[in-house]
């Protein structure tokens, strides 16, 4: 196979990406919604898919990479099955979110830079404000919001997940 045809066969497989791209009329201005949907599909933004998106939209891959790395919502690495997002907004901060963060990292043996467990079960990250300040401090596990947390109650949630995972 020549490089070109090999390339084509490979790209032909990006059926879902193609669907997303045509939904947005291959418009470079829709790059952000396109990346959001791609991430929804693959749970992260794989490099080869981004290259494909760039080529399809006729914009430089470096520009797509620039956009993907600018916004906190996008991730170029796969995340864990349970993404624990800890709010570090002002309200949560003054009510002790940092203690919860440290407790979670310690429990899962993670650091702020290496924040996904090797078995891909947990990712721990902080977000600036989830806007649920009335319930501070708040953590969100995948879609579920948990308010008025303490380090103990947060660890309890993690333990519950461990328990549930082991039962299954």
């Amino acid at each position: 196979m020549t490089a070109a045809t090999e390339n084509q066969t490979r790209f032909r497989h990006f059926a879902k990406v193609c669907e997303i791209l045509s939904k947005h009329d291959h418009m470079p201005s829709k790059l952000i919604p396109i990346l959001q949907e791609v991430q929804e599909e693959y749970r992260y933004l794989p490099q080869e898919v981004l290259t494909f998106v760039a080529t399809s939209l006729d914009i430089p891959p470096a520009q797509v990479y620039g956009v993907a790395t600018f916004y906190a919502h996008f991730t170029l690495k796969p995340k864990g099955k349970y993404v624990i997002r800890l709010c570090d907004g002002t309200a949560c901060h003054v009510r002790g979110s940092n203690g919860i963060h440290q407790a979670l990292l310690k429990r899962l043996n993670l650091t702020e830079t290496c924040n996904t467990t090797p078995d891909m079960l947990f990712t721990v990250e902080t977000v600036s404000c989830l806007g649920a300040c009335g319930l501070a401090p708040v953590i969100v596990i995948n879609e579920d919001v948990h308010g008025q947390m303490t380090p103990e109650s947060a660890l309890k949630l993690v333990d519950d997940i461990f328990l549930q995972e082991n039962v299954n």
Binding site: D88, G89, T90, A91, S128, C129, G131, A132, C133, G134
Partner: peptide, 11 residues
């Protein structure tokens, strides 16, 4: 795009 931490009026 209400981003101020500690603000959720717009939300």
């Amino acid at each position: 795009d209400e981003g101020d931490p500690g603000a959720f009026m717009d939300r």
